[in-house]
Structures are given as structure tokens and as C-alpha cells.
Design a binder for these strands. Structure first.
Lengths: 142, 142
DNA sequence: ATACCTGCAAAGTCTTTGCCTTAGG
DNA sequence: CCTAAGGCAAAGACTTTGCAGGTAT
């Protein structure tokens, strides 16, 4: 079952959001990106820049984060990153401290067992994790 | 061999930093904290607030990060967190999405093997990682 | 009709820098 | 002495909000 703009919009509608042009464009844009994007990247993206205000994108991302349709990530930058929360598609990242390039890691994430253990030992609920590797990429280390 | 203010200051001196009052106070404060601290927390801390300007603390943290004496962490907040980089003392964190409380995780970190694998398969150097668990803590979930 | 959304503009929050003075080695 | 470090104040970067008008349902 592929993730489509339509199916995600439906999910939003079911959470009580209205179907607006901005929502559609935003979902489209996020879906087309292989990696998380910042608010600035999103609102300057060709899909969105003439279509809606940055504040609108901001508030949309806020609502979508509340509804667990997108996730907000730190990634160590000044700006926050956003990515669609697609079922069964957890991603960890490898980031160059020098040039800032972000790439998803292919290897399976080794943290899920610990996550369950922490959930039961601490009583935290709705647990998830964020794992990032930082280092100097080959291009920058020259 | 315990980590002391004196030993860390020596490390700084060896990296070319001068021994100043502000440096001493900052190291002291970081050393006394069980968890990472923000610039604001540091510069408002009773040790520092009357002793030196926030810009000074900022620039010190910058230099110390360069010299790998402290590490700058994301932790998903608006503000950056700083912690001493003590030999053999890697920490992962558990953070409440609701109240923001940050606690170090006791369990051994399961990521080091993957880290080595990534280093060799991607050619990244000076690799390190940051692992955070987010969820709702027992107090907030009531 | 009526909540919800949007755009615009302004205000916040945290970080970063310039410039001149102070002090470590 | 000479250069790194500090203080003060101002500028940046990114986020967040108030308000008036627009729109999905």
C-alpha cells in the first residue's frame, strides 16, 4: 500500500483538518522529498512559495505534528526539520558536521529493543526515538 | 581517575586556551550538572550570572566545542544544550515531550557497533552519535 | 452560518557579531 | 608587549502570534 497525497489528506480530514490548497501542496512537497525539510525550505519550495504564506505553512506543520501526521526533528541545526510520519518507515540520519548534508541511513535501526525496555522500565508512553550520526563526510575531509 | 575542574582546565590550556576566571567558573558549573545545560541556564546560573557576560559564555562554549572539550547537543529544544565531553562517558537521553524534562539513560548504548559500520562503509570520519528517546513521562500522562 | 484557515505584519526567543577595553602568558 | 578574552550593545536567524478577512463544511 503506497503512501499517496490523497491517502494522507484523508488521514488529515479524519483528524478534523480541512482540505485546503495549502495542505495539499504541503503534503505533496513533503512526500516528494527523500529527507526532512525545514520550514524555510518548504515555504520557499517552488510548489509553495507563491501559493501560501510561511505562517500558513508553519501553522499547518504545527497541526500536522499534533495529529501525528508529521514529525518534527532536531538534526542539530538552528532550524527544525519536518518529515511525514509514514507507517513502518522509521529513519535515522547521517549528517556532515562540516557541510550539513543529511542522508538517511540504510541499515536497520538497532534501538527498538532498548526502546521497549525503556518504555516498560520508566513508564513513559508514546515513546519514539531520534538517532543521528555526525561526522565529517569524505568530500569535506579533504 | 576522577574528572576535576583542574584537570579539565589543563586540557584547555594544552589546547591553547587561556586560564581565565570565566573558563574556570564555566567548567565548574558544567561539571556540577548531571545533565546538559543551555547557554541561558549556564549564564544565569548563580556561579556565572554576576561574573561574566552571556556573550563570554557563548564564545567560551564555542571554543570548548571546537577543542572537543564540550559537545553541543540538539535535544529538540529551541535552545542548544552543552555538556562536558568526558572520556568514556557517552550519554543518551530520555526526554518528556510534555514538560521537557531531560534524564540520562542508564542502559548501555546499543549503537556503537552500527557506528563503526557506518564509519567504514561511508568514509565519514570523527563519527559520533546522538540518541534521544521522546515520550510522555508518567507525571504528564495523568 | 460558523468554525476553521490564511495573509500580513509585528513581536519573541535564542544566537551571533562588532568594537573597544582588559588581562593572560 | 602582544594577542586572546571579556563586556556591552546591536544585529541576525528562525519561530510564533494578533488581527482582519476568506473559505471549507
Amino acid at each position: 500500500m503506497p503512501h499517496t497525497t490523497a491517502s494522507i489528506i484523508n488521514q488529515c480530514r479524519e483528524s478534523g483538518l480541512r482540505r485546503t490548497k495549502a495542505l495539499e501542496l504541503l503534503i505533496d512537497t513533503l512526500l516528494s522529498s527523500p529527507r526532512p525539510m525545514t520550514l524555510a525550505e518548504l515555504s520557499e519550495h517552488k510548489n509553495l512559495n507563491t501559493q501560501c504564506d510561511r505562517a500558513t505553512v508553519f501553522r499547518l506543520l504545527q497541526r500536522l505534528t499534533d495529529k501525528a501526521v508529521v514529525r518534527r526533528l532536531g538534526l542539530h541545526e538552528r532550524a527544525a526539520y519536518f518529515t511525514l510520519l509514514l507507517e513502518g518507515r522509521h529513519q535515522d540520519f547521517l549528517i556532515c558536521s562540516e557541510c550539513g548534508k543529511i542522508e538517511p541511513i540504510k541499515a536497520p535501526c538497532p534501538v527498538h529493543a532498548l526502546e521497549r525496555e525503556i518504555a516498560s522500565s520508566t513508564g513513559f508512553t508514546e515513546l519514539y526515538h531520534e538517532l543521528e550520526f555526525f561526522g565529517i563526510c569524505p568530500a569535506c575531509s579533504k
